[in-house]
Design a protein around this nucleic acid. Sequence first.
RNA 1: GCGGAUGUGGCGUAAUGGCAGCCGCGCCAGACUUAGGAUCUGGUGCCGAAAGGCGUGGGGGUUCGAGUCCCUUCAUCCGCACCA
Length: 1134
Amino acid sequence: MRLHDKSVFPNDLNLNGLTGLSGELDELLRRKDEHMGPMTIFALRTRYIIGRMAEYSKDEISRIEDKWRSAWAKNKVYQTELDISKPKYYVLDMFPYPSGAGLHVGHPLGYIASDIVARFKRIKGFNVLHPMGFDAFGLPAEQYAIEHGIHPATSTQQNIQNFKRQLGKIGFCYDWSREVQTCDPSYYRWTQWIFLQIFESWYNRKEAKAERISSLIACFETEGNISHPFPNLKFRTPSGSDSFTATQWKTYDEKTRREILMNYRLAYLAHTDVNWCEALGTVLANDEVINGVSYRGGFPVVKRQMRQWSLRITEYAERLLSGLDQIDFSESMKDIQRNWIGKSTGCLVTFKIKGLTPGPSPEERGRETANKKYWSILKAYSKDLRKNQTKAESILWEELRNSKLGHKIRRQHVIGIFIADFTCLDKRLVIEVDGDIHLQTEEYDNARTEFLHDEGFAVIRFTNDEVSSDLNNVLSKVKKTLDELPSIKRSSSLSEPAPMTIGGEGRGEVLTVFTTRPDTIYGVDFMVLAPEHPLVAEITTESYRKEIDAYLKYVESRSEIERMAEVKRVTGCFTGAFAINPISKKETPIWISEYVLAGYGTGAIMGVPCGDERDHKFAKHFKLPITNIIGTFYSGEEANPSYEATLENSGAFNGMLMRDAVPAIIAELEKLGVGKRQINYKMRDAGWSRQRYWGEPFPVIFRDDVPYAMEEKDLPLTLPDSDNFKPSGNGEGPLANLTDWIDFASGEKRDSNTMPTHAGAAWYFLRYMDPHNQKEFAGRKSLDYWNQVDVYIGGSEHAVAHLLYSRMWVKILHDLGYLNFDEPFKKLINQGKITGDSRFVYRVRGANKFVSAGLIDQYETDPLHVDISLVEGLELDTDGFQRSRPDYASAKFILENGKYICGSAIEKMSKSKYNVVNPDDIIDKYGADTLRMYEMFLGPLEQSKPWSTNGIDGVYKFLRRFWNLFHDSTGKFGVGNDAPTKEELRALHKTLKKIESDIENYSFNTSVSEFMICVNELSSLKCNKRSILEPLVIALSPFAPHIAEELWSLLGHPNTILNATYPAFDEQYLKVNSHAYPISINGKVRATMEFALDMPKEDIEKLVLASEILKKWSEGKPPKKVIIVQGKIVNVVL
RNA sequence: GCGGAUGUGGCGUAAUGGCAGCCGCGCCAGACUUAGGAUCUGGUGCCGAAAGGCGUGGGGGUUCGAGUCCCUUCAUCCGCACCA
């Protein structure tokens, strides 16, 4: 029956008997009774009863929605099978982290959009994969466990159940039989397996793809590492070289080989600078640190060295970058990724340092490696030692000095924190004599040797006896070792440039910088090193040492946060040294400054003040001369980074456009052997270890401190049960406490770290394709069929980490032959964030009194968040507010116009701000279909917007009107079988066309609007014809599946509407034969005239010119020009 | 500072270079014999009594015609932030 039809009201109804039937009715009566007489109450009850009896009422909605939800579940209508006879379509949501707070109305926004796409694609004939799962490992569950003593597994499962309950109510068409949970051993077994594939792979730069580590070993065995040098230039073989031959490889023991391989593996263990957060007791990834504090909790973060797993994602930088051209992500999303990868093309340039002769002095060499703090102490001590040598040392020193070894030997040389007895720097060899005055234990010697190895030195050791009794043997041994070791190149001429790395050999006489602007080489007025640059100690002259030390101290004292906060501050210090420009030969001073970062490029720059803003500020601040090489492009006040200037003061390059000078100068630098082309990336390798309990354990076993992959048959390595989740705080995670699990009787050990949540999320979309496979992460047939995700919907906050790691993992699996695609997501849509609309009350300081927002100027107040359910618009329900908290029960209110008006602010939706809107409440009130359509109606999907329930009535009314099209005035279902009219067909087909194109364009708000227009039109046409309404139900079904399914069933279809076919729209119904032309005069519309669409322009022109309206405006003058666009507009220019 | 996005009624928003404001909220008026957080009908950009004029953040340009294209400027939001 119609909701507004009063005739059905039963006259003999006993109203009293109804009291208490519904709490809501009571509530209505209580709120109203002071203003209402008995008739009002009577009317209210009437309305309530009519509402209950109407077909599409609140109760009826929940009956319909519940009925279909259980029917869908029972009949497994969402279960998807691999069916190669059908084209596939893969619609994916970013799976949620199941937080304890449950869903708020912002979460479903993207899910609703993807659900519409999935349902639409299905009725368009696709085999649609639309799965859902949970990103269930992670820090919050662990922190909750620490605070509340509930095991993460327990709380996570509870949260998942709650999420599933909430998601279930919205009517999504997820195939829950494919659900994955990253914390499930049957899932993370394969996360671990993929990790091992990555561990057992290396990146072949020649082929630009990952390969099995076995291919690398085969290569080493035949030619050493000549073709594939260490990816990280800092690494050295035990003998201190950056290369080795096949013969050498064969002499290495197992451990050494593994150490060398570790430097190639795509998942590798290394001492890396990590972001250590003391408060969380864990390490954070770069993207988890924001402005020097943790993204969660805002705790301070410091740099710390730890032995960590990393993924060598930098090897994929180029492919991650170029892959962006193949995929349909928004430009801003691509830009964020490009920015993160941070590719810059430029070149390395080597400057000689004035006054430093090739081959540094022992002091300089020692200082280079010594910890600054110990340097002076060690130096003094080494002098001491030289005077008090043991007898054996003296004998050996005399011989080494006099024998013609061909290499310079130094004695009592400081290396790091040790003083080596004898050192050959050319060969990186240390010769030690165990003397009686050293009194060191064997352990001490071992530690020493290990340290020296790390520094790239080979060590040979002799006893006192050997030296005194068999000196010749000792000398020949030394000679033999020296011959075997490769010489480290020392450059002393331009034709033989030094290896251009920070950590490499050859430092001391040259300084290498990275620049993207080689064209400005003549404009270099100074050089700047990062304070941490290893050359700093070496080049600083005596007269500047004090100042430099003071500056270094200052830099050390500054925390990361301070440096971030004062980015624009200019600080620095002159070292006293000068560099010689390799092209202009000009001498420029070398400074140090914190604005140069040690971690990027070479940690050193050439300062070009006329072309770089930072250099310019630096030059101005320290009153350094500025060479202008760009003429009028440089104002003297501001640097100009243009490429368009013509070079001046640039020697042979004068008159050249800078743009052209870039390649020309690089060529010149390369010719002179002082530069080479170089590409740098900002992106760093991804730290992959977390000192946490609630994550995937690393499937490796350490033997002699070397990690070995576990065998596939032993996976999963399950997370051991524990009730101690507190990090030890010293860098080891909670797993370190479980010694039974960590330690083996054999002395072998497990890794105490776990993987980050990114691990499980990096490949879950592949597991959905074949979620129950026990033998593989997913079967090849499924992977080939379902292939790439056709559309991926989720928040833009995952732009960097998740999307880059997923893309990397897919590329690796592709390279290793498991996938036939190397980008996971064809198209990405970022739904906008739905923010909360908070309300505030203003408490008068020192009193239990609240002031309305308009009057706060007159008091000293503190704003307090108030629960939005207690506020209607901006007006506070003061009674409800008093009831909500006992301490406010006696609160006084200072009202304006008899009302308490709240303040408001748009903020993130969160429990603590009392502004969370739970979709459950909306569904209880209006039903899931209304929620779905209203969320889509709010605005464009990708736009962020504050949540407001204002306007939801419009959508609710629309559904009711839609429902009423199928029902007569008595509420009885019934559709007519008459032939449709032209107007009705037109209304239908216009809508079918628009909905289809809107969904393809992800423009769901305009779809909802179009449905409303259509229903408005059909209502005024009083259309109840099956031939019109049936197709319309199908078109609406992706948006409002429950009501659509009910009507579909009422229309007599036994099968679910999910298996219907989207009706084809027919262009012929949209055709019209005349058009109301707007007649504009001088661009302003003055009238409309109806002409047949096929009327020739000439006829239109005649009719228009003859019309009254033109006579009125032209005042008899002939028109200058008449523009007629057929089917559009007529414009007359006077 | 760099990069990206967005600026349209009281509000959310809509407009293949062709009648700016579709659709909805809100508001106003009316109908349903009283009542009304229901329903239905009509109205609703601004100024103006009207004729008409003015209107898409501001300024310029291209065009017969610009919310839409170009230049410039301002504001807001997001991302990155001393990356040489």
